[in-house]
Design a binder for these strands. Structure first.
Lengths: 116, 116
DNA sequence: ACTATACATGCAAATATTATTATATTTTTA
DNA sequence: TAAAAATATAATAATATTTGCATGTATAGT
């Protein structure tokens, strides 16, 4: 299992437009580097760098088929995160019953060691 | 609704150890700035900066109670993401039936315009 | 009115991320 | 075995993020 700190690093790695597209493509199935070049509008070395970053964090891996590298998804957190990114959120969370701006509110939290 | 690009920005904003802790605390309930100072080991201005970044992206908001600012969660994507970060993943995703390294595999994808 | 409290803001320094370019490695094909 | 295809690596430059510090503002208490 990953530690929380580790998961945050993973989140950071995922949070990049190119890498999200890569992961979305891999969700559909195996792809090799030059396939990505076709629809990501970036250079081959750049694609390679993103792929190896994703691989360094264990999110994806590859099989080798001759001189092709067939990349595929490996970490189950990826489909979960992509699902959230695809989800439509309509409402905001309910605001807490606290501290209206105009009137004098009352902070509900305990504030040990604080004056006032 | 947020666009995908927008959600990726949000993901990036969330993907920071201090900000994750802030959001986790806010998931429990309203907190004001100096409350965060107590358990995050960072300076007040730094806490304030992280809070205002989170607010700039609409993830949180605050009520004012005198000189306190009572921060609370606002964007429903936050609890969903925190849930995933808390989730335990045991297994890796099933590897695709393709291209074993030792033997000569066969790339399953269509590669239009590519030679070989 | 003065002082302390709670918090925000602006700026500069340190650090990290990203893309670009050139080059290297490996494998297949001719 | 030489050329090409597919991909990786390394170095660099451009840019963005993060923090620290000093200062600013508003409110509350005296």
């Amino acid at each position: 299992m990953r530690s929380l700190g580790n998961k945050i690093e993973v989140l950071k790695v995922i949070a990049h437009p190119v890498r999200i597209r890569i992961l979305e493509e891999l969700l559909k199935g195996v792809k090799c580097v030059s396939d990505f070049e076709d629809f990501l509008e970036i250079s081959q070395p750049n694609a390679s760098q993103h792929l190896s970053l994703l691989r360094r964090y264990g999110l994806i891996d590859y099989y080798m088929d001759g001189r092709l590298r067939c990349y595929f998804l490996r970490d189950p957190i990826v489909p979960d995160l992509l699902a959230i990114l695809g989800k439509e959120y309509q409402e905001e969370l309910p605001a807490p019953p606290c501290c209206p701006v105009t009137k004098k509110g009352k902070y509900p939290g305990v504030r040990p060691g604080k004056k006032t």
